[in-house]
């Protein structure tokens, strides 16, 4: 049997009874050590899907399975050591140092009255080393740029030593160089055995970063498959409701929209 780390079976979710379904009969399976992008326009339900995988939202119908077991069958602490989340942004109220902040990732391994020990500190330092900001460890997290903060958040989830890493719009605050740094970091993490699931509204990022893409539209899966299967002119144009075209540049897919009045046959 094919190995599956995360699977959604008939997941339906709405925020309130009167409101519409944000997720509507979602089914997919993710294999270990893969990178999957959840792609779609704003409001398609990408983040809701990610938070449902985390267990934060309980689906109205259907079951989320992690390593073959329904999420409900795990304790919260077990889930903390299996899955980690890199949120889109984070409000940090106090001036923690970067190392102190990354140490928070060790929480699932600590009992309520326990305090992180030397081993936890080593793991946190290792995580900082991996993302390449170990020398900043004593700087305050409140004084970081958007890109550096993103790296700190990733380091924290690496310190969590989870099998499944969930990232919510990981590139939204990053410039081009930081974006490429993020991509190689994600690749590195996957090579070390982690599975990655991330949301993005940017088809270009999904194209370069992901192995598989879940294309979401109004809470439904419009298409799920490899990059070449999903990123086609027709699917993207339909889901984003504007004419879009996929070009191959140096072996990479680039997605462009048209200027108003231009036709698909004009040169980009």
């Amino acid at each position: 049997m094919r190995e599956v780390i995360l699977s959604f079976k008939n997941i339906t979710f709405a925020y309130s009874e009167r409101g519409g379904r944000v997720l509507d009969d979602i089914n997919f399976e993710i294999t270990p050590q893969s990178i999957t992008a959840i792609l779609g326009p704003n409001g398609a339900g990408k983040t809701t899907l990610l938070h449902t995988a985390l267990g934060w939202h309980r689906p109205d119908r259907g079951t989320v399975y992690l390593e073959g077991k329904p999420l409900d069958h795990y304790t919260r602490r077990e889930l903390g050591s299996l899955m980690s989340l890199v949120p889109q942004s984070e409000h940090i109220p106090f001036e923690y140092s970067i190392l102190e902040y990354v140490l928070l990732g060790r929480t699932p391994y600590l009992k309520p009255l326990e305090i992180p020990g030397e081993k936890d500190r080593e793991i946190a330092l290792e995580a900082l080393e991996t993302v390449g900001i170990k020398k900043l460890k004593d700087r305050s997290v409140t004084a970081l740029s958007g890109g550096e903060l993103q790296l700190v958040l990733i380091a924290r989830s690496l310190a969590q030593q989870s099998k499944l890493l969930l990232l919510d719009e990981p590139s939204s605050h990053l410039d081009l160089s930081n974006k490429s740094r993020l991509l190689s970091l994600i690749r590195h993490v996957v090579d070390s055995g982690v599975t990655v699931l991330f949301t993005t509204h940017d088809p270009g990022l999904a194209a370069v970063a992901a192995d598989k893409i879940i294309l979401l539209s109004y809470g439904k899966i419009a298409r799920f498959g490899s990059v070449s299967e999903v990123l086609t002119d027709d699917y993207l144009s339909e889901v984003y409701c504007i004419p879009l075209k996929v070009y191959q540049v140096d072996g990479q897919r680039v997605v462009l929209g048209y200027r108003q009045g231009a036709t698909p046959n004009d040169n980009p």
Binding site: G55, R76, R77, L85, P87, T107, Q160, L166
Partner: peptide, 12 residues
């Protein structure tokens, strides 16, 4: 002191 969802994702 972190927001709820982050604390939740850390297993509490």
């Amino acid at each position: 002191s972190l927001n709820d969802m982050t604390a939740f994702s850390l297993g509490i």
